[in-house]
Amino acid sequence: MSMLQQGETPTVSDALPLDEEGAVEQQTRANRRFRVPGWLGILWENRKSRVGLVMLAIFLIVAVFAPLFSPHDPRSNDFAPNLDPGSGHLLGTTTKGEDIFSQLVYGARTSLIVGVVGGLLATAIALVIGLTAGYLGGTVNEVLTFFINLALVVPILPLIALLSAYAPGQGLWVVILIIGLTGWASGARLKKAQILTLRSRDYITAAVFAGEGLWQVIFREIMPNMISLVVVGFMGSAMGAIGAEAGLAFLGFGNPETISWGTMSYWANNQGALVTGQWAWLLAPGLALSFLIMALTLVNFGVDALGNPQLREE
């Protein structure tokens, strides 16, 4: 009987099966593929999310290069009013003689800005409040939970309407700020629930023993494990913000000077677009809004893999 390595410690890798090399190679190849676009590649893996990304990219390009896509100045009312779609104007003109298609293109800008900034603001507030409440627990949790619950039960849209009516100034940024400040509650609650399950893991204790401070533990150790939740939360807040802005504008609480899909619908409704047969005026902003929200929803399907390295390989 051969006695190999009697008494000496074979290191683990000595005895690893040969196929281990292959696994490593696969891994580096995967790394290389992911490195260039980073998180984008992970989202791209998922079919639904790919469709959403393409749609979102179209909206983004249109918004950024709005002057290139719009045939006319959206504010110019030099055209004949109430033109039907097609007659030199793709979607016709408004009762004031503005080009509807140009307004639609510039409206994408407004909606995306509101979505991104409002969503970021709401997510940031939700993160700080949710994570602090969940990780620290105790009295801090009790107090913060009280405010979360308070913010949850207050009906948001009337509150926003009220705030924007009293806000000093009427600009778009005021609207964004109000939306951001009112839309964080459900996100905070979700994040708190998640952190409660994560904070009892051994690796959190291990991080404390590794000398990590409070914010390092929260943002370095816990956050990466809930990144998918954060991204989903951001998408939700962005959708909410876009919808809220449109809703406010439609109800007439927005800044009528702004060109957004909401103000378009507001004017269309206000000027009796249906009565005058201007269906495109009413339909186009609504459809654009639904497609943007749909794009975000589709992207959400791929988000799970972001926070879970294991999911990326399966």
């Binding site: 893991r201 051994d202 690796y203 204790t205 291990a206 991080a207 023993f209 590794a210 000398g211 990590e212 370095r220 150790e221 990466p224 494990n225 990144i227 926070g307 879970n308 390295p309 294991q310």
Partner: peptide
């Protein structure tokens, strides 16, 4: 001066970090 080895190696390592970055934290902090 005092460190711990945990029972369950599956929950003692943060799944989001590579081995190297896990090991570097105590070195940088302590």
């Amino acid at each position: 001066h005092i460190q711990m080895v945990f029972q369950d190696p599956y929950s003692a390592l943060n799944p989001a970090h590579t081995v190297l970055s896990t090991l570097m934290r105590p070195l940088i902090n302590h």
